[in-house]
Amino acid sequence: MHQHFDAFLDIAWDSPEFAVDPNDPRWVLPKARPARRDRVVPVAPAGASGSRSAATATPTS
């Protein structure tokens, strides 16, 4: 016996209920706030004490 599962086969996708309305307010994106530079976490320079790169890190099991 061949079973076929198509969860969305019974949905009438061409129905007007599913039409995309370009004036729908749900398409309007909220205004983005600019990134704040004072909240950026500084990155330690390469070779700084306490930093480990992937090349020097020892694998863990």
Score class of each variant (00 low, 15 high):
M1H: 06
Q3P: 00
Q3C: 03
Q3Y: 03
H4Q: 05
H4I: 05
F5K: 06
F5I: 05
D6R: 04
D6Y: 03
A7L: 06
A7M: 04
F8T: 10
L9V: 07
D10H: 14
D10S: 14
D10N: 13
I11D: 11
W13P: 02
D14M: 14
D14T: 11
P16W: 10
E17S: 14
E17I: 08
F18Y: 15
F18H: 15
F18T: 10
A19P: 01
V20M: 09
V20Y: 09
D24F: 10
D24K: 13
R26E: 14
P30C: 04
P30L: 02
K31M: 03
A32F: 02
R33D: 00
R33W: 00
P34A: 02
R36P: 00
R36F: 00
R36V: 00
R37I: 01
R37E: 01
D38C: 01
D38G: 02
D38Y: 00
V40C: 04
V41E: 02
V41A: 07
V41C: 04
P42V: 09
P42Y: 08
P45H: 09
A46G: 08
G47H: 08
A48C: 10
R52A: 13
S53F: 08
S53I: 11
A54V: 15
A54M: 14
A55C: 09
T56R: 14
A57S: 15
